[in-house]
Design a protein around this nucleic acid. Sequence first.
RNA 1: GGGCUCGUGGCCUAGUAUGGAUAAGGCACCGUCCUUCUAAGUCGGUGAUCGUGGGUCCAAAUCCCACCGAGCCCGCCA
Length: 543
Amino acid sequence: MLLFNDYKDIILKKIKGLYGNINANDIEISENYGDLTLKIFKIKENPENILMRIRSEVRDEFIEKIELKNSYVNFFIKPVEMLKSMDESIKHFSMYPNVFQDTSKVLVEHTSSNPTGPIHVGRIRNSIIGDSIFRLLDRYGYRAVTQYFVNDSGKQVISLYLGHMRYHKNEKPNLENLLDGYQRIYRDMDADHGIEKEIEQLDERYENGDKDLIASIQEVASIVLDSIKSSLKKLGIEISTYVWESNFILYGEVDKMLYDISSELKSEGSAKYLAIGDKKIFLTRTDGTSLYFARDIVYHLFKAQNFDWIIDVLGEDHKNHAGNLDFVLKNYFDFESKINYVFYGFVSLESGKMSTRKGRIVTVNDLYDKTMDESVKIIRVKRPSYGDEQISKISRAIASSSIRFNIIKVNANKPITFKWSEALNFEGDSAPYIMYSYARACSILKKSKSYVESFGEYNEYERKLIKTMYIYPYYLKGSVDFLRPDIIANYILLLSKAFNDFYLNCPIINDPEMGKRIKLLTTFKRILEDSSSIIGIDLLDEI
RNA sequence: GGGCUCGUGGCCUAGUAUGGAUAAGGCACCGUCCUUCUAAGUCGGUGAUCGUGGGUCCAAAUCCCACCGAGCCCGCCA
């Protein structure tokens, strides 16, 4: 399987023989001008001469033509060579490009939302990014798993528990009354300072290992967590493992860690902190209870026991925390694992910031239902022959894919404003556009009979499609190198566009070129399936 | 005040890491194409001082500096 880089190496070697000052950076893969392009700014020679010398030196079989344009020499690779590379790979490994199994074990921690309310369109950005990175690394050949760190200690969950005890004590806890209690306790806290005291007392009992209290808190947290899990599942997200924060307290891991670095700890009253520069990073409170930072150290040491590479997906509000954590892990502990932090900007509403406590959120369930409804409405108009079951199946796929795609296609570090009009738009750069392209390809295959797949000469639309498919490994690699699944999302749009162009301009069924074009079609189908699965677009034969 | 991130047509996004050929898509708007494979599509058009100013360079959306605007952080919260 030869990729563009292999051709580049061959060409580069020959050009270096002619011009010693040319190096790898002077040749790049080109989107619009040939396949590989050489910049000749450096070469002080008549460009026509340069072209002539290069043409007589680079005469490989895979070269279709070499042209001069402005200060560039453009190399065109024969499309059939590209197509054969892909075909070979798909035949042998059922994918293009094939994976290079990496034995590194990777842990992607994502979501880890406090189980104090339903998951909303802000938090889901974390899950969608995390799940896509997990799928990406898995596809690339790593041994990847995901993990959710369940925050069942600290003041937030204690407030959830206390809210229930105060306002809904005699009711069986469920998502609605728990959320109501949680919101009410934060409302009442300003006026009633007793509440805060009560929370502090509970926290102390908790940290001292009061088993009944911990169990009660886990019970209410579990109810909320289950609702989060069911929302995630609608988007095709299933997290491999759940780690409960309380375990580290119960089994004394936090205390042990504090003991291990006791010589480094400084005191302010009886609160302990680490001094980094002029910053004080507190690990314990005056009352002896632990802080998030301390528990997060323990959690990361735990992760490092079993994984070579740790990836944390975090909101941008965690940047300082992560920076400090990183410093502390590497300077105070025996921490060998590679660690990356993937940050994402906040999602706001047109009306302003989201807030679970104030009830100003768009929940994922709500978004999912409305996207479903919109999809059903459209299908009934466009596909009157479809039955209810099929409509429901397609709408679920569209809802899940649309929600994921709209979020993943934007570079993670940009802030997003959620807009219903955009969320419910199924045209243009959208998941349905991609799904539609796929359905078109499937439809042709279904209707095609008696053909022999073959290779041949290719017109401009076929060439564009072949090249767009062939370049996939570079988008895949870029996406892995920078942990940016949005690169894949944008690639899929390019691929779909190239396919739609081909589809419109190149008849297939009962055409003399049928066998040759079916080969393109099956290759496209495979690569679209591959790339779409990375970002969680559900492709269906019919939409 | 300090730190990090972002600023690209009316709106949204890509391109910035590795500076290079007419700044690429989408939404909206105007117009085109269904007696042939799914029109959730296609093609064409209108529309950009790439936040502002300076610098480096043969060449800057991209690198450097300053400034402006937005987001996030600067807790014995998580």
